[in-house]
Computed example of a mutant assay.
Amino acid sequence: MKALLFTCMLVLWLAAASARRFDPNSQLIQGSLSGRQLSGYFGDYLKSRRARRALPPADEPDDSPVSEGGDVSDLPTCLLCVCLTGSVYCEEVSPDMTSVPTLPKETAYLYARFNKIRKISTKDFADIVTLRRIDLTGNQISEIEDDAFSKLTLLEELSLAENKLVKLPALPAKLMSFNANYNLLKTKGVKANTFKKLTKLANLYLADNQLEAVPHIPENVRILHLQNNNITEVNIDTFCKSNDTYYLRMSLSEVRMDGNPVVLSKNPDSFTCMKVLPVGQYR
């Protein structure tokens, strides 16, 4: 009798539980949340997760590139210019760039062409010893302090073309290419030893200046442009050596002297050591 009574009570309890399970207005399980409550809770959870994700972690330092003084050291230059890894491009900058910009310390290549830079001082490149190429073509440079490039022991290419230079500074010993076309250079503005120690110099461009004589040309120079100057004379010691009749200058493969008042045919012995004749006036 007790077993029958227990069985009846169990059947009634299961029937009631089944009714609650399939009733959409009832809760799924005693103490659980309805579908609407669960959706609201899950939405609030996601919002709180997104909010926490947007905040910086409390235990991580702020690594934004601000110096101790509150300034970003390279920000002004890299806002005006294009800064890539090791290269800075500052061409036709607006507003006008009148001095060499502050460069990142790892800069190897600087292109600051067609601006209004007027002077180069010693401090401009004093800390940028990684520089390999500097191109300052098309500025208004009229003065360069003599030690401006003295610390640039890796510099291989330097262009000062289309400026207003009347004299040249001391140049780095490892220079391989130097361009000073379209300036106001006279012979007195180029010291006798300016190029003498540049044993790696291969390309030398001094066209469209006011030179009255050919400067000392290092042995390794292959291309020499001296066209459109005021050169009036060449002699046997200009390219060759009067005390060595067997001397040959095989490296010099291109010499331009057109546009000068000198008549090259008046000095036929001046080119006997060369494998090519200079381009210029022969009549």
Rank of each mutant, 00 (worst) to 15 (best):
Q30I: 09
D208E: 07
P65R: 07
E212I: 04
C240V: 10
L175W: 03
L224V: 10
S159L: 05
Q227G: 14
T238R: 02
N183Y: 02
D124P: 05
G86C: 01
L204D: 04
E60D: 12
Y109T: 12
L252T: 04
Q27R: 15
A19C: 02
Y246S: 15
P218E: 00
T272Y: 09
I217Y: 01
R283H: 13
T122A: 14
L211P: 00
S251L: 11
F149G: 03
L4A: 10
K151S: 13
Q227I: 02
L158K: 04
A207R: 02
T232W: 03
S242I: 07
N193E: 12
S26G: 03
Y41D: 03
P278D: 03
S142C: 01
E233H: 08
A180L: 08
K197Q: 10
N229G: 01
N228M: 09
N267H: 15
T194K: 02
I120R: 08
N183K: 06
P61I: 12
T98W: 02
A3N: 08
Q27A: 09
R249K: 05
K119M: 10
N228R: 15
P101L: 10
T194V: 07
I236V: 15
C78W: 04
C240K: 09
S48V: 11
R21Q: 06
P101H: 11
D244C: 06
F6E: 13
Q140G: 04
R53A: 11
F114S: 13
A173M: 05
G40L: 11
G259S: 06
Y247R: 07
Q30M: 05
K119H: 11
V234G: 03
T77E: 03
L5Y: 05
Y89N: 12
I128F: 00
F114P: 00
L204W: 01
R53P: 00
T7M: 07
V66R: 15
D269R: 09
I223P: 01
Y182W: 11
V276P: 00
P215Q: 05
P268S: 06
P172I: 08
L198D: 00
P61A: 11
G280H: 10
V263K: 14
L175I: 10
L46G: 06
V66S: 08
S99W: 07
R52S: 06
V11A: 13
I117T: 02
I29S: 10
K241D: 01
S265P: 01
Q210Y: 10
L14H: 08
R283L: 12
W13C: 12
G138Q: 12
A161R: 15
S265Y: 02
D147P: 04
D62R: 14
S48L: 07
T245L: 11
E156F: 08
E212W: 01
E219V: 13
S121R: 15
T98I: 12
C81T: 09
L226W: 13
N229K: 01
